[in-house]
Design a protein around this nucleic acid. Structure first.
Lengths: 216, 216, 216, 216
DNA sequence: ACTCACGGGACAGCCCGTTCTT
DNA sequence: AAGAACGGGCTGTCCCGTGAGT
């Protein structure tokens, strides 16, 4: 996901250092398109919108992407990357499975989506559920990866004896993500952060109840 | 909202009262349109789709509804009514706040949406969030009513001493609905019922933990 | 023109005394339709407009008229009749050709059209000139009658020695009607009565110059 | 507006300056649309008609004009320009106010409208009087300019002592234009040039009667 | 690398007219 | 005599995509 069209020279440490002009334009288009697709959905976004956002003409856009769908896919990847990076933070440095799960929850609740329009994963999944299958699969795969990564942390916690053995890792992942995403939607519809805060408190309480009772 | 399809029992004086032909057609259109709007969203549904689904021509449709928006609003009401009726069941006859909350959860998880496309409330809310404001408000109000009704049950449980006093009714409502809706989405995207089942188990456990400890 | 569908009984002295219900409705429709057609033209008037103006449904209208065109023709006749009656006044009682021509001019300038939208003859003629040929011919014939009647008065004035013999009656008619109708249009566009007043003054001066010089 | 089709003389620096392809097409569309709008009116002209007349598809047309209204406005300007240029001729070189007024009358009567459908000013004014306000104002303003220019010539004639002081310039303008436009309509409806010829003769006689009486 | 120019098709909405029903 | 119900067609607008030109 991270680095798409590499071709970068060796000494470049950061992603977009020293891109050719065409690639710069391509990245610029994607960055401009991401919030628009994320806000208005695939069908709800017109090439005209993208032209206005990028300052390019239609021909200019189609030089870099063979179709609206391809551009939308790239924009989805971009938005997801941004969100993942921002919300993951220094997750790997945190010791303890429960602490890492709490970290995930906290970040999700406290850090707003870096791309306007909210969680790109859910937005894309819902938007394309009965529509564009290419984008739908992209979103489904991303969700699967997210579920897997959370379940893996839970499994490690169980293996290490930190988490009770009578709960399945997959269930922990399902609950955390279900509750967080559900709360995010309520927050957007109700236009208040209360559901997200409630989700955080409740999930953290629930995680505490999963802690393996220290027997002697 | 009035009485839809079935003939029902004889003593109903006003409900079905022999619909005129036009009203029958109107109801037929709404029933046919509801799953389409629910699946493809407002923008994703064309009048052509509705013509195909109803067998009527455009002139025929526009006789019963002054705009696509009006038809979508009626279809939303219809779908929501169907879902509410089916999933509410004999809720009022159930004694005990916790039992009623469990009943809500169980029904939501076990009974599939009577209208194809999943939960019309969430679908409409997400679909129109950055689009049609009329439909968005309709969905937002419906969600608000749902939240209120769940919170009210929780409040009654607290008042009666059944539920602990240190949790707010609003939070209980937020968590139940967030988790259920979030799980429903995961289920749809992953195409497996596991997230819903996990949500049910976890929410019921959580509700048990809210029971006021019997004092001596 | 005057009496269309007669069938009226003998003792009725005025036109619409004692019409059957259907005929009353028919007359009512025509009276309601006339100003609408006169203001918005044939194409610019929709059956919906007529429904709103009459309070009838489409079926009700089409019972009395076989097509929109037929209704428009009747409405044109009605509007023209109204205008002719009102502006003719006691023309026949006036002695002298010049006085009668002046009377025509004065009436035209001073009396606003009884049917909203201005002179139905010109409106219809212009409106349908490149469109509906049936209505166009109706208007052309009405104009021809009007021209003839004015020319006839002029001819009588010439025959009686009141008007100079070196001007043709047809030219007098053309000038009077051209100037009046042209001034009416300027008045409508400029939204001021000045052009009509100027036309009156100038035409009257001009008529005076046509008076046969009193022989010695 | 600028300079249309022909290549013209060499020293024109800005007028034709080699139009780009798109501008050529744009001008071609306007030239093709002008007679259609002038004949059938704004509502009576469909984009389909314009497609047929230009050979372009809808997408092609809408590239050059953002709406039918904008195209109609341009077509009106074009038609008016054509008519003004053709009928004005070398007006400025003619000495004497009365001679110039006669020149205007003569040109109007003798030179047929270069754009099919007759006088675009009157056509548009009447057509849009109860409809499109944008076009109506355009026509009203053009009429106002025409009236002003005629009135100005009359005023100059009065100031120079050529025309009698007891007639207002505005009335002269009103009469000339009313009579000419009225005669034009009669000519179109009756399908004979007689009304226009009568108007010319009569207006010229009338102008002679306005000549200041030779001083003693 | 990008703009300009254009095609062809879909969209919601409104139109006129007919038939069925009361 | 009139309303209710419906058909089929057309309108202006917007859409995505392609190819010529620079």
């Amino acid at each position: 996901m991270a680095a798409k069209y590499p071709a970068r020279n060796l000494e470049s440490t950061r992603a977009n250092a020293r891109l050719r002009k065409g690639e710069q334009t391509r990245e610029r288009i994607i960055a401009a398109a991401a919030p628009i697709f994320n806000q208005h959905g695939y069908e709800g976004t017109s090439m005209q919108d993208l032209m206005a956002a990028t300052g390019l003409e239609k021909g200019g856009l189609y030089r870099h992407f063979s179709s609206k769908e391809e551009l939308a896919a790239e924009a989805f990847h971009f938005a997801l990357d941004q969100a993942v990076k921002l919300r993951t933070g220094n997750l790997n440095e945190i010791p303890g499975a429960l602490a890492r799960l709490r970290h995930i929850i906290e970040r999700f609740v406290e850090i707003p989506s870096p791309v306007a329009g909210g969680c790109p994963l859910m937005n894309t999944a819902i938007d394309t559920d009965d529509g564009n299958p290419v984008l739908r699969d992209l979103a489904a795969q991303a969700l699967r990866r997210w579920l897997n990564s959370v379940a893996k942390i839970a499994a490690e916690g169980i293996a290490s004896g930190e988490i009770r053995t009578d709960v399945e890792p997959r269930r922990i992942a399902n609950i955390i993500i279900s509750t967080l995403e559900g709360a995010l939607m309520l927050s957007r519809i109700e236009r208040t952060r209360a559901p997200l805060q409630d989700a955080r408190i409740t999930l953290e309480d629930w995680l505490n109840s999963l802690r393996a009772t220290a027997r002697r």
